[in-house]
Amino acid sequence: MKYQTEQKDDILFIRLEGDLIASSDTQQMIEGIGDLQEGEAQLCAVDLSNVRFMDSSGMGVLVSLLTKFRNRGGELVLIKPSDHIRKLLIVTKLNAIFTIAENDDYAAQFLKESIY
Rank of each mutant, 00 (worst) to 15 (best):
M29V: 06
D104I: 08
K2E: 12
A101Y: 01
F53D: 08
E6K: 12
D83T: 13
R15W: 05
T99D: 03
L94R: 08
Q7M: 15
R70E: 10
E40S: 12
R72E: 03
L65S: 05
C44S: 09
Q4N: 12
L111C: 03
I90Y: 15
N103T: 07
V77R: 01
R70H: 09
E40G: 15
G73M: 09
D47K: 14
E31N: 14
A101K: 03
G73A: 01
S82N: 14
L76M: 04
Q27E: 09
L66S: 05
I14S: 00
Y116I: 08
G18I: 11
T26N: 13
D83V: 01
D19R: 10
L20G: 04
R72F: 03
D55K: 05
D9P: 12
Y3P: 10
D25W: 06
A96Q: 13
R70G: 11
T67C: 08
Q109V: 02
Q42M: 14
L36A: 13
Y116A: 09
C44A: 00
D10L: 14
I100N: 13
D55I: 07
I21A: 00
L48N: 00
I79P: 08
A45E: 00
N103D: 11
A45D: 01
L20N: 11
R70F: 07
Q37K: 10
L65K: 01
I30R: 02
G32Q: 08
D104P: 06
M1T: 12
A101N: 03
S24R: 11
E38H: 09
